[in-house]
Every structure is written in structure tokens, then in C-alpha cells.
């Protein structure tokens, strides 16, 4: 079954034909070649594919593409402004050494974005809970949490 889908992708009104079984992750990576959103497990366990739909962080690998009708999707590619300037969260990740292999980074940044959009000054506990579903094997999370704290202070 084909569906015509209309939604907003990184600020752009978008219309696209999709198959019923497509996930948001498939739509982003394979249809739009937005490969910044990573597939770590495909089962909603690791958070590498986190994007923001209508202000909420979701696992794109579990999110049915058909559910996007009329909604607004923000991916890591939509976070950087047109001039290439980094978002304050991205800047903080760079400056705090929160990036090693970097595979979890886009998902981690998107989870942080969803948190800070909702909660201007989260506690460390709230930060930890917000990224508890984003697995990282390199950093031990400490510098990631420092980065998110710094980003929240800058607001």
C-alpha cells in the first residue's frame, strides 16, 4: 500500500509517497538520505535514531512513517542553522569532549534538545533520565552530561 504523506521536515513542507510498513528511520535514511540519524539496533533499545516529532524525542526506528501526517519532524541535520553555525547543544558537545566515536552523538544531541526545550534548567538527575535511553559505549556519559549542563546554562 502506498500513502501520500504530508509533513514538515526540518522546517520544510514535505510531500512524499511512502509504503505502509516504513518506519520514520527508513524514511529519513533511505528516502531522504538524511543519514545523520543512526540505526543502532532497529528495536528501540539504544536511542541512536532519536529525532524530535512535535517537540518529543522518539525512536525513529519504531515510529511508523504513516503517523507523521501533519506533524513536524526535526533531525540532527535540522539543528545547524543555514550558515553552518552549530546549535548551542552541539557546540557544548564539541567543547566538552562529549564525542568519541560519535555514533550515538546525533541521537544524544536530539534527546538533549527535547529535554532543554521542555525544561530550561534541568537537574543532573533529569539530564541523566532524559538520555538514559541513549546508549554510549565510549564516553562513560560524564562529558555528555557536562555538555548538556553547559548548554542549559547558556539559555
Amino acid at each position: 500500500m502506498k500513502y501520500a504523506l504530508s509533513f514538515i521536515l526540518n522546517g520544510d513542507r514535505t510531500e512524499v509517497g511512502i509504503e505502509a510498513h516504513w518506519t520514520l528511520l527508513h524514511l529519513l535514511r533511505d528516502r531522504f538520505e538524511l543519514t545523520g540519524t543512526k540505526e543502532g539496533c532497529g528495536k528501540g533499545e539504544c536511542g541512536a535514531c532519536t529525532v524530535i516529532v512535535d517537540g518529543k524525542a522518539v525512536n525513529a526506528c519504531l515510529y511508523p512513517a504513516v503517523e507523521l501526517e501533519g506533524r513536524e519532524v526535526l533531525t540532527i541535520e535540522g539543528l545547524t542553522d543555514a550558515g553552518g553555525d552549530l546549535h548551542s547543544i552541539q557546540k557544548a558537545f564539541v567543547e566538552h569532549g562529549a564525542v568519541q566515536c560519535g555514533f550515538c552523538t546525533p541521537g544524544m544531541v536530539m534527546s538533549a534538545k527535547a529535554l532543554l526545550d521542555e525544561n530550561l534548567k534541568p537537574s543532573e538527575e533529569e539530564i541523566r533520565m532524559a538520555i538514559a535511553g541513549n546508549f554510549c559505549r565510549c564516553t562513560g556519559y560524564i562529558q555528555i552530561i557536562e555538555a548538556i549542563k553547559t548548554a542549559s546554562k547558556g539559555r
Partner: peptide, 15 residues
Amino acid sequence: PKGDARDKVTGRAMY
């Protein structure tokens, strides 16, 4: 900061 950190935080790094 790590040399490729900008590419990685923006999703530009290709794996």
C-alpha cells in the same frame, strides 16, 4: 576538541 567532533555532532560524519 576532537578533530572530527563538528562532523559528528552535525550528523555529517559517514559511518
